[in-house]
Design a protein around this nucleic acid. Structure first.
Lengths: 111, 111
DNA sequence: GAGATACTTAAGTTTTCACTTGACAATCAG
DNA sequence: CTGATTGTCAAGTGAAAACTTAAGTATCTC
């Protein structure tokens, strides 16, 4: 039977919910970096950082590749698309709702 | 001394990471609704739904108010701003990075 | 006032998360 | 070859998250 798999958007938002992982993404925005380089400014063990990187990779936000003993991480530029689309869609609907509310208030004021 | 409080953006992304909570937000996009109405299509107890609503309210994504015995929930339209700003900022940086990569490849091709 | 309705609250359970420890594997430098 | 570097893996811990159950409190309806 079909296995239950988490939708991408769940994983993306979950990944973004952790400040350490957002810090990693911000660091990688300056360009690719190795695992231990990512770990330097983070106050935790290498193993913990690797786990964060796994979450980020599974969510499609970064990609990694190993050359020799060094694993290099870089941003996956399309990784944010689904999340941004969901958010901006909501926002435009919500703004429309606000407009309707404004209309109602204006009408009420005219009485 | 200053209390430790979770940054808004942490809470927003965390709130968005749960499919039930996104479903609630989508439902509320059609207009305000009471707690029990929100609970109807969700396969869980009322108490669980209330807890999700609390998370959403604390993250600034919705507001609620009680009139009589009914608590009505509605969208807080500005709640997504911080998240959208963070995401679009990253995206534009990432696209620039992609361009630079493109340039490098083009240069390499010219040899 | 007696029910029914619409939550609210507290406590307990199970699962998931973030992290550590410690042992291991691979690779590079002298 | 011998270390030192760079990362990997598995297991365990503690706390937070996502629920449930059950009892309680207003409020509305008759």
């Amino acid at each position: 039977m079909s296995r239950k798999k988490k939708p991408d958007i769940d994983r993306v938002f979950h990944a973004l919910g952790d400040p350490t992982r957002r810090a990693i993404l911000e660091r990688l925005s300056n360009g690719p970096a190795s695992v231990s380089r990512m770990a330097e400014p983070l106050n935790m063990t290498l193993a913990a950082v690797v786990q964060h990187l796994q979450v980020l990779e599974e969510s499609g936000l970064i990609q990694t590749q190993k050359t020799g003993r060094v694993r290099t991480c870089h941003i996956e530029p399309t990784g944010l698309s689904a999340a941004i689309e969901w958010l901006t869609a909501r926002r435009s609907i919500w703004e429309r709702q606000l407009d309707r509310l404004g209309d109602l208030l204006a009408e009420a004021g005219e009485d």
